[in-house]
Design a protein around this nucleic acid. Structure first.
Length: 723
RNA sequence: GCGCCAGUAGCUCAGCUGGAUAGAGCAUCGGCCUUCUAAGCCGACGGUCCGGGGUUCGAAUCCCUGCUGGCGUACCA
C-alpha cells in the first residue's frame, strides 16, 4: 500500500518545480535546456522558521547574468499569484537569494498523523530482498568484558534493528575468540599460582582478573629494569677511530669471557667504562641482533644506549654502569628489582614463566585431558557471562562463530592457494603479496606453520557467504583493524572470491576515560593499571546512581520497590546505549561515569522522559472523541515543528542504514524530543481551549510518542510508560 | 619512513553529497512549578571552524601544503 503522506511530500517538490519552470521559461526567458530540473535544486531551509522548502537562485545567476537576490525578486513577481491558487502550498516569500515556500501543514498532519496511529507509517519497510550479516561483539573468552566492549555491542545491535526495519533480512552474528595465547596465559596462571576460592558469581570477570594477573607475572619489567636475556655488563677495553666516519668508533669490548669488536655510533663513554653489551642472537626492542659489517669492518653485537634500554630519550648516550658493576653479569640481574627473593635468578624465573605458558599452550592444542577440561569449563564461565550481558543490553545474535572452529579450514585454504600460486612463501612463512592493491604483505601462516587471526578470517568470510547465503557482510570492529580488514578483503579478492566486494568493515573508535585532572587529555583503559571499568561495575554504578539521583526521593513509597528497580535498569541501559551511539562512529568516545549518569541534555534518559510524558498525558486524559480532531487547529509553532519532524523519520532511518550510522537516529530523536518538550511547556492538552483542539493535540501527542518509541527501538533502547 | 583518521565555544560534540547570521548539550549567569512529570522549558554569555595557499558567485565542508594529536605498519588477537 502506498502511503499518502509520502506522495504528498514528493509532490510538493514537483509542483514547485513545475511552477518555477513555467515562470523561468516563460516571462523570464530562460531556455529549457539551460534549466535542467529546478525541482532537484529544492532544499530544506536550515532554520525551520524560514519555511518548509527553499529554492536557491544562485545557479540561475550565471544563466541570467543577474544577482541571485534580484532573480528571486523577479520570480516572486510572477510566482505569488500562482502559489495562491496551488493546493498544498500556503505561501512563498523571497529572502535574499532564496525563495522560501510554506506548505499546507494541516494537509500534511491530516495524512501523517493517522498513518502513524494506524501503524502503517512506522511499519517495517517493504522487503528489499537483500540478506545482510552483521558480525559484532567478538569478545575473547577468559578476558574481562568492559565498557569499551559495550560500544561495539550497542553499534552492532542497533545496526541490526535499523537494517531490519529498512527491509533487509538481517543475520546478527558473534565471533568468539576462544583460542590463542591469552587463554594459555589465563589457565597457566590459574594452575600455577591461584590458590584462593572460586567465586559464586561473575565467573567471567574472575577469569579476566586471572588473565590480568597473568600478564603482570609476564611483565618482566616488574622483575628487572632490563628484561633482556643475553645482555650483560662489559668493559670498554679499547676505542679506535672508524675510517672516514668521525661519528663511529671501533670498540673492543671485554665481555668477561672474551674480547669482541663492536662498531659503535653512541657517545658519552671512555675507555674502562662499564656498558651494557647485547650478544649476537639477543633481542633488543624486538629486533634480533646479528653480526654485521660496516664498510667492511665487522661488528659483533651492540652496546646499548639509554633509549634502547628504555631509561631515557637519549639515543646517543650509552648506558654507563658504576665502576663496581661486575663484568659478565647479566644486566637483567644487575638491574633487578626486589620483586623476587635474592637467591632466585631473574633470567631463570623469566625463562620458567615463559616456558610455563608455552607448555600450557601445547597441552591445550594437544587436547590434554586435564587442561582441555579446564578450558571447556572456564570457557563456559565466560560464555554464560556474555549471554547474560547480551540479554541485559538487548543484543540479538542468531549464530555464534568460534575461532576454534575456523582455524583448520583457514589453514587448508591458505595451503590450497599457496599450491595454486596465488599466495607466496616469504621468509619461511606464507602470505599474500598485495602490492597490486597498494597494500602491505599479509601474513597468513607463521614460519612454524601455525595460523593467525587473518587465516581464520579467510575461512570465516567463506563460511558466512557459503553457509548462510548472505549478500552482504558487515564487520563491526574497532578502527585499529582497518588495515587488517583491507588486507583480508584484498586477499579474498586475489583468491578469486568476488563476494569480498560485499564485505564492509565498520570501524569505530575506542572508548577512553577522562583525564585524571581537569584539562588533562583522555587516557586509555588498561586492565593492568586497573583503570578498566568492568561491565558489572558499570551496570551497578549506573543503576545505583540513577536510583539515588532520580528515583529515590520522588518515587520511594509511591512505586513498588520492584518498579523502581526495573525503571532504574531501563534508564541505565538507555544511558549506556544512547551514549555509545550518539557519537561519530570513527571517533573515540570519552566515557565519564559522572557526566553520563547526570543524565540531562542530549542523553538516553531525556528521550525516555519525553516518551513517558506523552504516555502520561494520554493516561490522564482518558477517553476522548477522536473524530473531533481538526488538523487545521495545529497552528502553534511547536505543533507544526512536531509534524514536520515526524515526517522525516523514514528519510532518517534510511540514511542511518545507508551510512551505517545509528547516530543519525540519535540526532533525529533529540530534535524530535526537544520539539516535544517545548510543545509540552507551551501547549497544554488537558487544558486545551476547546474539545476539538484537545482531541487534535492528543492525537498529535500519541503519534509523537510512537515515533519516539520506534526510534529508540531502532537504537535498541526500551521505553518506560512512566518515569 | 609510509599509510589511515582527526583538529569547530571553557569542556563533550553536531554540521548530510559546498549555500542564508556556524548549531546543540554540559558548565556559568538570569527567569519559569497552586494549572498534563522541573530528568523539563525560556533567555544570556561564549567561536580567527588548527595555520597558509587554491578551486568557486559562494568553503567548516572540496584540492594542495604545513603544524599538532591518535592509530596502524608480517610471525599477538
Amino acid at each position: 500500500m502506498q502511503h499518502a503522506w509520502r506522495k504528498l511530500v514528493m509532490s510538493h517538490k514537483e509542483t514547485i518545480g513545475v511552477l518555477l519552470t513555467d515562470i523561468l521559461t516563460g516571462p523570464l526567458g530562460v531556455s529549457a535546456d539551460q534549466l535542467e530540473d529546478p525541482a532537484g535544486w529544492i532544499e530544506e531551509p536550515k532554520d525551520k522558521k524560514m519555511g518548509d522548502l527553499a529554492f536557491p537562485c544562485f545557479r540561475l545567476a550565471r544563466v541570467l547574468r543577474k544577482k541571485p537576490n534580484l532573480i528571486a525578486a523577479d520570480i516572486m513577481e510572477h510566482l505569488e499569484a500562482r502559489v495562491a491558487e496551488t493546493a498544498g502550498i500556503t505561501g512563498v516569500n523571497a529572502v535574499g537569494p532564496y525563495l522560501n515556500f510554506t506548505l499546507d501543514r494541516a494537509a500534511l498532519a491530516a495524512d501523517l498523523i493517522p498513518a502513524v496511529l494506524d501503524g502503517s507509517f512506522l511499519a517495517r519497510r517493504p522487503d528489499k530482498g537483500e540478506k545482510v550479516m552483521i558480525e559484532y561483539s567478538q569478545p575473547n573468552t577468559h578476558k574481562a568484558f568492559h565498557v569499551g566492549h559495550t560500544r561495539n555491542v550497542a553499534l552492532g545491535a542497533s545496526l541490526a534493528h535499523i537494517f531490519e526495519w529498512n527491509g533487509f533480512e538481517v543475520v546478527p552474528v558473534n565471533y568468539i575468540g576462544d583460542e590463542g595465547a591469552h587463554i594459555a596465559k589465563c589457565l597457566w596462571y590459574y594452575r600455577t599460582y591461584f590458590d584462593g576460592n572460586i567465586p559464586d558469581t561473575n565467573l567471567g570477570e574472575f577469569l579476566g582478573e586471572l588473565y590480568t594477573q597473568a600478564t603482570l607475572k609476564l611483565d618482566f619489567n616488574l622483575l628487572t629494569r632490563c628484561p633482556m636475556p643475553k645482555v650483560s655488563v662489559a668493559r670498554v677495553a679499547e676505542i679506535a677511530d672508524f675510517p672516514d666516519n668521525p661519528k663511529l668508533k671501533i670498540v673492543q669490548v671485554d665481555t668477561g669471557e672474551k674480547t669482541v669488536q663492536v662498531v659503535c655510533g653512541g657517545t658519552g663513554y671512555k675507555q674502562g667504562d662499564k656498558v651494557a653489551y647485547a650478544h649476537i642472537g639477543s633481542r633488543v626492542n624486538g629486533r634480533q641482533v646479528g653480526e654485521i659489517s660496516k664498510n667492511g669492518v665487522p661488528s659483533k653485537g651492540m652496546i646499548l644506549s639509554e633509549l634502547e634500554m628504555g631509561l631515557s630519550d637519549d639515543k646517543m648516550q650509552l648506558k654507563i654502569f658504576p665502576d663496581d658493576a661486575p663484568v659478565g653479569l647479566p644486566v637483567a640481574e644487575y638491574m633487578r628489582t626486589d620483586a623476587l627473593p635474592a637467591d632466585v635468578s631473574v633470567l631463570e624465573e623469566m625463562e620458567r614463566r615463559n616456558h610455563g605458558v608455552a607448555e600450557t599452550l601445547k597441552l591445550l592444542e594437544a587436547r590434554d585431558p586435564e587442561v582441555y577440561a579446564l578450558f571447556e569449563k572456564t570457557k563456559k564461565w565466560s560464555m554464560d557471562e556474555f549471554h547474560a550481558i547480551y540479554d541485559w543490553l538487548g543484543a540479538p545474535f542468531e549464530h555464534y562463530f568460534f575461532e576454534s572452529d575456523v582455524g583448520g579450514e583457514g589453514k587448508k585454504k591458505v595451503l590450497e592457494y599457496l599450491e595454486k600460486g596465488v599466495l607466496v612463501k616469504s621468509e619461511g612463512a606464507v602470505g599474500a603479496d598485495l602490492s597490486e592493491f597498494n597494500l602491505p604483505f599479509l601474513l597468513l601462516l607463521k614460519s612454524n606453520g601455525s595460523g593467525l587471526y587473518s587465516t581464520k578470517d579467510i575461512a570465516l568470510a567463506h563460511e558466512k557467504f557459503d553457509r548462510f547465503g548472505v549478500d552482504r557482510s558487515i564487520y563491526v570492529v574497532d578502527v585499529g583493524q582497518s588495515l587488517h580488514f583491507q588486507q583480508v578483503f584484498a586477499t579474498l579478492l586475489k583468491m578469486g572470491y568476488q563476494r569480498a566486494k560485499k564485505c564492509y568493515h565498520l570501524a569505530y573508535g575506542i572508548v577512553m576515560l577522562p583525564g585524571e585532572e581537569p584539562g588533562a587529555p583522555p587516557r586509555k583503559m588498561s586492565s593492568r593499571d586497573g583503570t578498566v571499568i568492568l561491565f558489572s561495575e558499570l551496570r551497578r554504578q549506573l543503576v545505583e546512581t540513577v536510583t539515588a539521583v532520580h528515583l529515590e526521593e520522588s518515587y520511594r513509597g509511591v512505586w513498588s520497590d520492584e518498579e523502581i528497580r526495573e525503571a532504574a535498569e531501563v534508564v541505565a541501559k538507555s544511558t549506556i546505549n544512547y551514549g555509545m551511539l550518539n557519537q561519530d562512529n570513527g571517533k573515540d568516545i570519552v566515557f565519564d561515569m559522572e557526566a553520563w549518569t547526570s543524565a540531562s541534555g542530549n542523553t538516553g534518559p531525556y528521550m525516555l522522559y519525553a516518551y513517558a510524558r506523552t504516555r502520561n498525558i494520554l493516561a490522564k486524559l482518558g477517553d476522548f472523541d477522536r473524530n473531533s480532531a481538526d488538523w487545521s487547529l495545529l497552528t502553534h509553532e511547536t505543533e507544526q515543528d512536531l509534524v514536520a519532524t515526524m515526517e522525516k523519520f523514514h528519510k532518517v532511518a534510511e540514511r542511518a542504514a545507508r551510512e551505517y550510522r545509528p547516530q543519525v537516529i540519535c540526532l533525529y530523536l533529540f530534535d524530535l524530543c526537544k520539539s516535544f518538550s517545548s510543545f509540552y511547556n507551551h501547549c497544554s492538552v488537558l487544558r486545551a481551549e476547546t474539545p476539538e483542539l484537545q482531541a487534535t493535540r492528543a492525537l498529535l501527542v500519541d503519534a509523537v510518542g510512537r515515533v519516539i518509541k520506534k526510534g529508540l527501538d531502532l537504537l535498541g533502547i526500551e521505553t518506560l510508560e512512566r518515569i
